[in-house]
């Protein structure tokens, strides 16, 4: 689905671990403002794809271009500087610090990109920004709580909020609702997607929950054995035979019917 407004262009992406092929022939274009759901069974290559785009894994072959800049070979922090950020399946936050301290560090780094790291971190300007982020992600009640004592859902929110403060153009979320209760998942996603839409961030998220996929994405990339087997709008994708067989599982689909 190549179009003129593509900001991310992935071509012939390949990743092998010895004889195991984790990703192959991945060709995809992502446009500004799209919300893309990445689905697939365990081991299908979803997280591997996210890891390659964000520099955590080096591809064996192929190219990933963001706004014309080649990302393959760049260090993770350079990819962040370029405008791509991510959250993780297991929240990657600073456990011994409070929510406010976590966000202050993220804000301070985003503010100076490491060029003025010897400036004081706790400034009135950053405090204002902190209040804004806390409000937007509904983290105010937990502001002074140490992260290790927080529930998984709050840590996930914090993880995403920290990834977003650098104002990325593209955000990749790896299973944002994993570990979050069924009752809370829509509230959680409403907070996250509401904030991201406000900022006009392009979002790619890995998800196993098809209710979430149907509700929040505009396009689906279905992975199977390291390849993209479907790239289409969610309703069409979830009705697609291949997707039903290899991703959702026929049994599950029949039950739903």
């Amino acid at each position: 689905m190549k179009n003129s407004s593509s900001i991310l262009e992935v071509r012939d992406l390949l990743k092998t671990f010895g004889a195991v092929v984790a990703a192959k022939d991945i060709n995809v274009d992502i446009s500004q403002g799209e919300i893309v759901g990445i689905i697939g069974a365990n081991g299908a290559g979803k997280t591997c794809f996210v890891n390659m785009v964000t520099g955590y894994l080096a591809p064996t072959g192929g190219s990933i271009k963001f706004e014309g800049t080649e990302l393959v070979g760049l260090e993770t922090r350079k990819i962040t500087h370029a405008g791509i950020s991510r959250s993780f399946q297991v929240s990657q936050v600073f456990h011994s610090m409070t929510v406010a301290e976590n966000l202050m560090i993220a804000l301070a780094i985003a503010n100076n990109r490491g060029t003025d790291a010897l400036s004081l971190m706790d400034t009135p300007d950053l405090r204002l920004k902190l209040d804004e982020v806390l409000k937007r992600y509904k983290l105010e009640p937990q502001k002074d709580a140490t992260v290790s004592a927080l529930a998984q859902g709050v840590r996930k929110l914090l993880d995403i909020a920290m990834a977003v403060v650098s104002k990325p153009r593209i955000l990749l979320l790896d299973e944002p609702t994993s570990g979050i209760s069924v009752e809370e998942k829509f509230d959680f996603m409403d907070i996250v997607m509401g904030a991201l839409r406000e900022d006009g961030v392009t979002v790619l998220f890995v998800e196993h929950d098809m209710e979430i996929v149907e509700r929040y994405v505009s396009r689906v990339l279905a992975f199977y054995q390291g390849e993209i087997i479907a790239d289409m709008p969610p309703k069409k994708a979830l009705a697609d035979k291949k997707v039903q067989e290899f991703v959702i599982g026929k049994e599950h689909h029949k039950k739903k019917k």
Binding site: R77, Q92, V93, I109, G114, A117, L118
Partner: peptide, 30 residues
């Protein structure tokens, strides 16, 4: 120093190097 961004990164690096890198800061440089 401990109150600067660099200084505050001391505990952050101990807690989670991956997040520091993904925030856009070089752990090795720090």
């Amino acid at each position: 120093y401990l109150k600067t961004t660099f200084g505050k990164l001391t505990t952050a690096i101990r807690d989670n190097e991956i997040r520091v890198e993904y925030l856009g800061f070089s752990v090795a440089h720090a």
